[in-house]
């Protein structure tokens, strides 16, 4: 292969990447603004909220509980050396609200719900269900894509809030009930140092941004995948990888802007 051929390949790969980015942007605009609503939307949205949100609840609650417990245990072991183990409450709460709550929820959400969305939509495309819908005059963006996108936007921030609460409760269980930190100082230190707007609302904003990015990537990868079984498997992998990288990168930028 000559040097010119390599250059051509490189250029084509670059153009492909930019085209895919543009296609996903147009896709998002079409789904969100091109159509006023999604048909007999409410029932479709409820069904997706169930499969995307409610079914993810178990993994979120269990991992939130264990992450809160581990944070309290580690925090206690470090802080007890300085004789300030009362600060374990504020440490657990701030870590969960600012960073771990939104980020870990988004990563779990990408693995649990995002990959499922990609695989489902990809298979619909591979078995030509999407093009059949178009043939009979039904818009797949409106009936298939839009409800899934909105369900993701709505459920991930809610999941992140549940994650934080369960984590803080798990931390209290370890610190107060097991390690014997005085429960008054656990909660009071927490309430003195956690600010509603700075910590809780900023964490919620992070969760909303991550929800947007993860769901967008998942749905677009499904819609844009190569309609073969290999293509679906590649698209599912890409969803998890891209979504995780995007969440971690965005988290740094958002933290730098917020705190």
């Amino acid at each position: 292969m000559s040097a010119v051929d390599r250059l051509v390949l490189l250029g084509r790969a670059g153009l492909d990447t930019i085209t895919a980015l543009g296609r996903s942007g147009l896709f998002l605009v079409n789904v969100m603004f091109g159509r006023a609503s999604f048909g007999n939307g409410w029932a479709l949205l409820v069904k997706q909220l169930h499969s995307v949100g409610v079914l993810s609840l178990a993994i979120i609650v269990v991992s939130g509980l264990f992450i809160g417990m581990v944070l309290a245990l580690q925090g206690y072991n470090i802080l007890v050396g300085y004789g300030s183990e009362q600060a374990v409450g504020q440490m657990v709460a701030l870590t969960l609200l600012r960073e771990l709550g939104p980020v870990v929820t988004a990563l779990l959400f990408a693995g649990r719900a995002g990959s499922a969305l990609t695989a489902e939509i990809g298979l619909m495309k591979a078995t030509e269900q999407l093009s059949s819908m178009e043939m009979i005059g039904v818009d797949p963006l409106k009936y298939v894509i839009a409800p899934r996108l909105w369900a993701g936007f709505i459920s991930m921030p809610l999941l992140a809030m549940v994650f934080c609460v369960v984590g803080i409760w798990g931390g209290a269980m370890v610190a107060v009930d097991w390690l014997g930190v005085y429960s008054g100082s656990y909660w009071t230190n927490m309430q003195n140092s956690v600010q509603f707007v700075d910590d809780v609302l900023n964490g919620l904003i992070k969760a909303v941004v991550f929800a947007f990015v993860v769901t967008w990537i998942a749905v677009f990868q499904g819609y844009d995948c190569e309609p073969t079984s290999e293509g679906i498997s590649r698209a599912t992998t890409r969803t998890v990888v891209y979504a995780s990288l995007a969440v971690l990168g965005l988290d740094f930028i958002l933290t730098a802007l917020m705190f």
Partner: peptide, 24 residues
Amino acid sequence: ELTVGVFILAGVLALTVLALRVAG
């Protein structure tokens, strides 16, 4: 619809708990 309702309620309740109990 019932399970989705419970789910949304749980999320909103969690935010309230964070506001009142955690942020004081």
